[in-house]
Design a binder for these strands. Structure first.
Lengths: 192, 192
DNA sequence: CTCATTGTACCTACCACTCGTTACATAACC
DNA sequence: GGTTATGTAACGAGTGGTAGGTACAATGAG
C-alpha cells in the first residue's frame, strides 16, 4: 500500500471516529506511519486529504448500499435489505456525522461530497419505491420522494439517538419504525 | 447580566454553531466580553462551562417542546404541533449535534445531558401517542415507543440531511413524511 | 543523473489552563 | 467614623503543548 493510500485510509478512519475538526494532521500521520513530507507532497493540506478520504468513504457506502437496493426481489424486500444493512450505530454514519461538522459545512468543497452522497441515496431509494408503486406493490398514493426522505432521516436520526444514549437499541428501534412504515405501504397486507 | 450568565449564554451559542471540539475558551470569552480569569473563577474549565450551557439549552428545548405536546387538543394535533415547531434546519438540533461530537460522547458527564433530553422527549412523545391509542384515536396496534423513536429520529435525521444539502427543504420533506405516517395511524381517516 | 517520494527541523498561532493581581462589597473591630 | 479583615468577581500575563504548515535535505527507483 502506497503512503498516499495509507494516508487516505487513516484519514477516513479518523474522520469517522473524531470528525474533521477533531482530527489533526499529526494523528493521521501517526496512524498511517508516514512523515509530514509525504502528506504535504500528496495533498495540499488537511482539507484536500479529507476530501480524498471522504470520496473513499462515499464510494464504499454507495457500493454497500447498491448491493442491498439492487437485486431481483420485491421493492419492499430491497428497502428492508437497505434498512437491515450491517451498521455500527455507536460509530455513526460516515457521511452524516461529517455533515454536522462546522468546518465541513463551511467548506463547500467538502460539504458537497456529503450532499452528493445523500442526493444519490435519496434518488436510489425513491426509484425503488417508485418501481414498487408501478408494480402495484405499494399503495398508489405513496410519495416516493417523501418516503425516501423519511427512510434516510430515520437512519441518520437513529445514529444520533444511539450515540446520545450510547445504546445501539435506540438505533434499532428507529429503524424498526421505518420498517413498519414501509410494510404499511404494501397493498396486499391487510392495512390498505 | 452577570459574567457567569454571559459566559453560559455565549458558550451555548457557540456549542450550537460549532460544536464542542470546534469551540475554544477564547471564542467564548470574546463573545461574552469576559476575561480569562472570569471563566476559570466560575467554572473549573471548558467541560464544566459546556455542561452548564448544555443544561441551559436542554431546559429551553424541553419548555418549547412541552408547549407543543401539552394542551387540550387531540393526540394527533399535539404530535403535529411538535413536528411543526419552529426550527432552524441549517443550524441543527442543539442536543443532537452535540451527540455527534467525539469529545462529548467520550465525556460521560456531558453526554448524559443529551441522553437525558432524548429520554425525556421519547417518553413524552410515547405518552401522547399512548393517550391517543387509549382514546381510540390511533389504531390499537400502534406501538407508542417505536413511533416515538421514529418521530425523534426523523427530526434528527432531517437536520442532518438539511445541513448536508444546505437546504431547509430537505428537513421539511423528512418531517412531512413523519406527519403522513402519524396521520396514517389515525383510525377515523379512510386509511384503516 | 534525475525526479518523485519521504523524513526532519522549524515556525507561527492557538489551545486549555494556572496564577497573581485588582476592584468592590460587606463585616468586624477600635 | 474610620480603617482593617474577608469573600467574591473580574482581569490578563504567562505556560507547556499542539495545530497546521513550510523549507529543505535524504532516499531510492528507473
Amino acid at each position: 500500500m502506497s503512503k498516499k493510500e495509507a494516508l487516505t485510509r487513516a484519514a477516513a478512519e479518523l474522520l469517522w471516529e473524531r470528525g474533521y475538526t477533531g482530527t489533526s494532521p499529526a494523528m493521521i500521520l501517526e496512524r498511517a506511519h508516514a512523515g509530514q513530507g509525504s502528506m504535504y507532497h500528496h495533498f495540499s493540506g488537511k482539507a484536500e486529504l479529507a476530501a480524498a478520504a471522504m470520496e473513499h468513504m462515499s464510494d464504499q457506502l454507495r457500493s454497500r448500499t447498491e448491493d442491498a437496493l439492487a437485486g431481483e426481489e420485491s421493492a419492499v424486500a430491497r428497502v428492508h435489505a437497505f434498512l437491515d444493512l450491517e451498521r455500527d450505530p455507536l460509530a455513526g454514519c460516515r457521511m452524516g456525522r461529517l455533515a454536522q461538522d462546522y468546518e465541513i459545512v463551511a467548506d463547500d468543497g467538502l460539504r458537497v461530497t456529503t450532499a452528493d452522497f445523500f442526493t444519490w441515496l435519496g434518488d436510489r431509494l425513491s426509484a425503488v419505491l417508485a418501481e414498487g408503486v408501478r408494480a402495484g406493490e405499494f399503495r398508489p398514493d405513496t410519495d416516493p420522494d417523501v418516503m425516501a426522505s423519511l427512510i434516510m432521516a430515520t437512519v441518520q436520526g437513529g445514529y444520533v439517538l444511539a450515540r446520545a444514549h450510547q445504546d445501539p437499541a435506540a438505533f434499532r428501534r428507529a429503524v424498526a419504525g421505518a420498517k413498519q412504515v414501509v410494510a404499511s405501504l404494501v397493498v396486499s397486507s391487510g392495512q390498505g
